[in-house]
Computed example of a mutant assay.
Amino acid sequence: MTNSTVSGGGFVLELAPGTHMYGYIGMDQTLSPMHAEFTILLYAMKNSLQLGVTSMFFESDCLQLVKLINDEEDWLAMASECNEFIHLLSLFTVFSISFIARERNVRTDLFAKGARSQNSIFFHVDSVIPDG
């Protein structure tokens, strides 16, 4: 949907070997793909904390986002996301983020496409893989 006002995103939290939570999100269109990636990371961080998991190793197929966080670059256009990120980060005992190649991140890309196809705003997290 090229004229959609909805962006989609997804994440998978591995809570323990073989135990996963799947996030599937439809959100207002963001200013850029980078904003969308950052927003999804923030959702994943919040969900991890809500589940009581404060030690997490995140992966993203957005190399620019990983560099922004790991190199602590200052990007004024992302100020509100950065402020929220810093707050959430302070609640983790262990946090890291690394790059994962897109071809190794197929499941979350499918969640994002599925969320966009819903063309509505929603947030769903479950231990069951979403249909579609």
Rank of each mutant, 00 (worst) to 15 (best):
G26I: 07
Q64H: 07
L65W: 02
Y24V: 09
I40Q: 01
T108N: 07
I97Q: 02
R104H: 14
E37S: 13
L42N: 09
S55R: 12
K67N: 14
Q118N: 15
F123Q: 12
N70F: 08
M78G: 05
R102Q: 08
D28M: 12
L89E: 13
I100H: 00
T19Q: 07
S80K: 13
A44N: 03
R107K: 12
T93W: 01
L51N: 09
T19C: 02
D61V: 06
A16C: 07
L41V: 11
D74V: 13
P33Q: 02
S96N: 11
N70A: 05
F58R: 00
L51F: 09
N119P: 00
S120W: 09
G26M: 08
F58H: 06
D71H: 05
F85P: 10
Q50K: 10
G18A: 03
I69T: 01
F99S: 04
L89W: 09
G8F: 02
M34W: 07
F122I: 05
K113Q: 12
S127G: 08
G18L: 00
A112K: 13
Y43Q: 09
S32T: 15
P33M: 05
L68E: 05
M34V: 03
T93E: 09
V53P: 00
M1P: 12
S127M: 07
L13M: 01
N3T: 12
G132D: 08
H20Y: 07
V66D: 00
F111E: 00
D109N: 13
Q118M: 11
N105L: 13
Y22G: 05
E14S: 01
T30F: 00
R102P: 03
I86Y: 14
M21I: 01
T5W: 14
